[in-house]
Design a binder for these strands. Structure first.
Length: 112
DNA sequence: CGCTTGACAGGTC
DNA sequence: AGACCTGCCAAGC
């Protein structure tokens, strides 16, 4: 299986209003050895059908830096539409929105 | 074939 | 709290 498709499959499992970290995705992908960097590189070329905006840094940070804030603003916009709360610092509220593969909705109560 | 770079993560200074 | 270093694996040059 191509690493890229494996990553897409994982990201697609992330429900709206939830986010995962690059490291998490890297660890969730089975059969393929990946690193957070690989995930990022793959996200960069992810097709529209993949909710790449739900993948954020370990601290809820958005991939700002190389690409400029342009991408970040679009990502924040998409996430806000899904009900994701952003901190004043411009990061995702991880405590309330980080997704767990086990049980998937472990933080569901918190989200309400 | 080896060095550099990369939407990261974690620990240390 | 912010800056810096190391580890990770793959792809590009």
């Amino acid at each position: 299986m191509d690493p890229a498709e494996a990553v897409y499959a994982v990201v697609k499992r992330v429900p709206p209003g939830r986010v995962v970290t690059y490291g998490q995705v890297a660890g969730l992908v089975e059969g393929v050895t990946l690193t957070p960097r690989e995930v990022g590189a793959i996200m960069n070329v992810a097709p529209p059908e993949v909710p790449w905006q739900r993948v954020v840094g370990a601290k809820g940070t958005l991939p700002i830096g190389k690409r400029g804030t342009e991408l970040m603003l679009r990502q924040r916009s998409l996430l806000e539409q899904e009900g994701v709360a952003f901190l004043p610092s411009g990061q995702v509220d991880m405590a309330a929105h980080q997704w767990s593969p086990e049980g998937g909705d472990a933080l569901g109560g918190l989200f309400e």
